[in-house]
Design a protein around this nucleic acid. Structure first.
Length: 115
DNA sequence: ATTCTTACA
DNA sequence: TGTAAGTA
């Protein structure tokens, strides 16, 4: 599971935007007992999708309508091509890491110097 | 050090 | 949307 800080770093979205999308009901996240948000692969995809739709639609309502319609039609797994497009719309700090995260590969996090 | 919510130049 | 404030 990823923290909001890691998701910011990974997607280039601000924590403000992430929390706002949740606030308006476009997405919801799991919470730790302490109330902190926890993110999984699918959340990353959805967050990037929201930003993409927001650009196309202009407002939150437009995004909501399109997301509802997609739900009714059923979601399909992202192709490598769609993944590439989704991650190249905006600058991200670690695109290779983002691509791996979207494919479910564990992204190594900087840890304590063990040597 | 991080994250969370609320409020506002 | 950014950011400051006061917590957990």
């Amino acid at each position: 599971m990823l923290s909001i800080g890691e998701v910011e770093q990974l997607t280039g979205l601000s924590s403000r935007q992430i929390r706002y999308y949740e606030k308006v009901g476009l997405i919801h996240f799991q919470r730790t007992p302490g109330g902190q948000r926890r993110f999984v692969k699918h959340d990353i995809e959805t967050l990037l999708r929201i930003r993409q739709l927001l650009d196309e639609e202009g407002d939150i309502e437009g995004v909501k309508r399109r997301m509802e319609r997609e739900q009714q039609l059923g979601q399909k797994p992202l192709s490598d091509q769609e993944r590439a497009k989704l991650t190249s719309l905006y600058p991200v700090s670690d695109r290779p890491g983002l691509l791996r995260a979207l494919q479910g590969i564990e992204v190594p996090k900087p840890k304590r110097p063990s040597k």
